[in-house]
Each structure stands twice: as structure tokens, then as C-alpha cells.
Amino acid sequence: MDNATSIAASAGRPTRISWQGLLPWLLPVGLIIVWQVAVGLGWVDSKLIPSPLAVVQDGITLWQSGELPKNISISLFRATAGFALGGSLGFVLGMANGLSKTMRALFDTSIQMLRNIPHLSLIPLVIILLGIGESAKISLVTIGVMFPVYINTYHGITSIDPELLEMGKAYGLSKRALLSKIIFPGALPTILVGIRYALGVMWTTLIVAETISSNSGIGYMATNAQEFMNMDTVLLCIVIYALLGKLSDLIAKALESVCLAWQQERSAA
């Protein structure tokens, strides 16, 4: 059978669903089924814990009214802006301190001291200085995101094998070439770990910021619903945060696959 015939035969076969692809969703779907059954059979008071179907129906109602998409877009803007600012600042400081001993001596000790202060404890100070506007919430996300990116970038840069650097210098590579061909590629896996961790911190910080001092966003929706004992909306907001967190993790994994494709090719060879 020639190649064309093989391709045609394989194209005509039904696509098989991989069990490994289904495994990550097995536990969440199972919990939702148990949750629905427990509420339906009266094992759980539906006034305290509404059923998944009730939560979905509440989400549809809020979406049709325009309230849900508006607050989701506001939260996404805050998260994205804070992540961009904090990630950029952490990356630049990590690169500078990792590459320069002078910069390291000047800034690293101060950054490490600030890193050990729980950033959520700064909420009262941020509110006093910036109020409860967008700048306060974005600033909190920026602070929370900056340190994971910084520490992983710094660690990745300083963990490069010195022998690789010596070999690059022996081949006559310039400082720019050393950075682009040896230092940055070697530090990239660690940097991406920091980005993935920072995405989780981003949502955690935003949840707290929006529930304490906000008049919009998903966290505000949850707080407002809690005051009126509207558990459908409270659980809906929790589910939305979980889905957004999972989406962020998938984006981080895709970024790792794209940026570290050379590692997979080298290991396969």
C-alpha cells in the first residue's frame, strides 16, 4: 500500500478519543454529578448549596442582562493590566540583577525584603494612597505578580552552567550573542515556571481586591450576592474564577510548548 492510500485510509477512520485527554476532566465532572445528585435527593439544602443546574441558569440570566459579561471584562482588564505591569517589572529586575553583580548588590536585598511582606496585607495602605479605583486593584495585582516572575528569572539567569559561558566566550561570542544564544534559552524554562505561578497569584490577588474594595468585577458580584444570600451567584462567581484560572494555566502550558519546542526536538533526537 503506497503513501497516498495509507493517508486516505487513515483519514477515513473515526477519530479515537484518548483516555489520557479525558482524565483531567474526570474528577471535576464527577464532583458536579455528585453535587447535582446530592441536591436533587435532598441530601444538601438547596437554599445553602444550589444545584449546578441552578447555577448555570443564574449565569444565563445574568449574561442575558449584560451584567455578567460587563463584570467579567472588567476583571479581565484588571488582571491583564496588573500581570503585564508586574510581569514586565519582575522580568526586567530579574534580568538586571542576574546579569550584573552591581545591580544585584544594589537591589536584590531590598527586593527580597519586600518579597517577604504578604502583598495582600498592603490593601489598607493601597486604599489610603490610591483609593478604591482601578489603580488600586491593578497595583495590588502588579505587586503580587512581580515577585514570582522576578525570583524565577533571577534564579534562571544565575543558574546557567559557567562552563557553557566559558565555551561561548572561547568561541568569540559577544555579550549580546551570549545573552541570546546561551543565557536566555537556558533560563527560559525557569522563567516560564515563574509566569505560570504568577498567573495563579494574579487571580488570587484580584479576588481579594475585588471583594474588599470594588463596585464592579466578579469579586464585587460575589460580595454583593453574599449580602443578599444569593448563593446561585456566589457559586457562579467561584466557578468563573476557577474556569479563568484553568484558562490561564492552559495558556501558560501552550506558551511553554511553543517556547520550549527546541528542548523536545533535542530530547527526541
Score class of each variant (00 low, 15 high):
213 S>P: 10
220 Y>R: 07
193 V>I: 13
41 L>M: 15
121 S>P: 12
1 M>N: 09
267 S>V: 15
47 K>Q: 15
248 S>I: 04
105 A>H: 14
13 R>H: 08
131 G>A: 03
186 G>K: 04
152 N>E: 02
232 D>S: 10
170 A>Q: 10
28 P>R: 00
80 T>M: 10
29 V>T: 05
3 N>D: 11
181 K>N: 12
40 G>K: 03
195 I>A: 07
80 T>W: 08
247 L>T: 11
54 A>H: 09
207 I>S: 01
138 I>T: 01
133 G>H: 06
235 L>C: 05
197 Y>T: 14
65 S>P: 11
179 L>R: 04
205 T>P: 13
43 W>P: 08
68 L>T: 00
252 A>C: 06
4 A>T: 14
101 K>Y: 14
181 K>D: 12
75 S>F: 06
83 F>S: 03
13 R>K: 14
134 E>L: 14
216 S>V: 11
7 I>S: 09
223 T>P: 07
63 W>H: 09
133 G>D: 07
203 W>G: 04
186 G>F: 09
128 I>S: 03
224 N>P: 10
172 G>H: 02
196 R>C: 08
86 G>A: 06
216 S>H: 13
50 P>Q: 00
211 T>D: 07
190 T>S: 14
12 G>Q: 08
13 R>G: 07
42 G>M: 07
17 I>G: 00
249 D>E: 03
250 L>R: 13
70 K>C: 11
30 G>F: 11
53 L>N: 06
163 E>D: 13
107 F>A: 14
230 N>V: 04
108 D>A: 13
45 D>P: 05
66 G>T: 01
251 I>A: 12
195 I>V: 13
49 I>R: 04
82 G>V: 06
244 L>V: 02
17 I>A: 04
18 S>H: 10
216 S>Y: 11
198 A>M: 04
200 G>C: 05
213 S>W: 08
212 I>Q: 11
172 G>E: 01
202 M>I: 04
120 L>S: 05
61 T>I: 09
12 G>N: 09
92 V>D: 01
87 G>C: 04
225 A>E: 00
137 K>Y: 04
248 S>E: 01
92 V>H: 06
161 D>M: 09
189 P>F: 01
203 W>N: 03
168 G>T: 01
161 D>Q: 07
59 G>C: 06
92 V>N: 05
203 W>D: 00
186 G>N: 04
251 I>W: 07
186 G>W: 05
183 I>K: 01
23 L>W: 12
218 I>K: 00
21 G>L: 14
269 A>G: 15
18 S>Q: 11
63 W>V: 12
258 V>I: 14
83 F>W: 01
33 I>F: 10
45 D>K: 07
36 Q>N: 09
75 S>N: 02
178 L>D: 00
56 V>R: 03
262 W>T: 03
